[in-house]
Amino acid sequence: MKDLLEKIDSSLANLPLGEHPQNLYDPIRYILSLGGKRLRPMLVLLGYGLKNEDIESIIDPSLTVEIFHNFTLMHDDIMDLAPIRRGKPTVHEKWNNTVAILSGDTMMVKAYDQLLTGPHQSLPLAIQKFNKCAVEVCEGQQLDMNFEEFETVTEGQYIEMIRLKTAVLLGFSLEYGGLLAGMKTDQLAKLNAIGVKAGIGFQLMDDLLDVYGDKAKFGKQVGGDIASNKKTYLLIKALELAAPAQRKELDKWLSASDYEVDDKVKAVKSIYEEIGIFELTQKKMNDYYDEAFELLNQFDARKDGKDQLAEFLRRLMNREQ
Rank of each mutant, 00 (worst) to 15 (best):
F71I: 06
F71T: 04
F71M: 09
L73C: 13
M74R: 03
M74K: 09
M74G: 01
H75Y: 08
D76T: 10
D77R: 13
D77E: 12
I78N: 03
I78F: 01
M79I: 07
D80H: 12
L81T: 03
A82K: 04
P83A: 02
P83T: 00
I84H: 11
I84Q: 03
P89M: 10
E93L: 10
K94V: 04
K94E: 04
W95Y: 12
W95L: 05
N97P: 02
N97Y: 02
N97G: 00
T98D: 04
V99W: 07
V99M: 09
V99F: 01
A100C: 02
L102F: 15
L102V: 15
L102K: 15
G104S: 10
G104Q: 00
D105N: 15
T106R: 03
M107A: 05
K110W: 01
K110L: 12
A111H: 06
Y112P: 05
Y112D: 00
D113M: 01
D113P: 00
Q114A: 05
Q114L: 09
T117H: 05
P119H: 07
P119E: 08
H120A: 11
S122Y: 08
P124H: 11
P124W: 08
P124K: 13
L125M: 12
I127E: 07
Q128H: 14
Q128S: 12
K129L: 08
K129A: 06
F130G: 00
N131A: 00
N131L: 00
C133Q: 04
C133V: 09
A134M: 06
A134T: 09
E136M: 14
E136R: 13
V137I: 13
V137R: 06
C138Q: 12
E139N: 12
E139T: 11
E139C: 11
G140R: 08
L143C: 00
M145W: 03
M145S: 08
M145L: 14
N146F: 00
F147L: 03
E148S: 08
E148G: 01
E149D: 06
F150N: 07
E151Q: 14
Q157E: 14
Q157F: 03
Y158G: 05
Y158Q: 12
I159V: 15
I159A: 11
E160N: 11
E160Y: 09
E160F: 08
I162K: 11
I162Y: 04
I162V: 15
R163V: 11
R163H: 13
K165H: 00
K165Q: 01
T166G: 10
T166N: 08
T166I: 06
A167M: 02
A167R: 00
V168R: 04
L169W: 07
F172A: 03
S173K: 06
L174T: 02
E175D: 06
G177Y: 05
G178F: 13
L180E: 05
L180A: 08
L180D: 07
A181Q: 10
M183E: 03
M183W: 01
M183R: 09
K184N: 13
K184E: 15
K184S: 12
K184Q: 15
T185Q: 15
T185H: 15
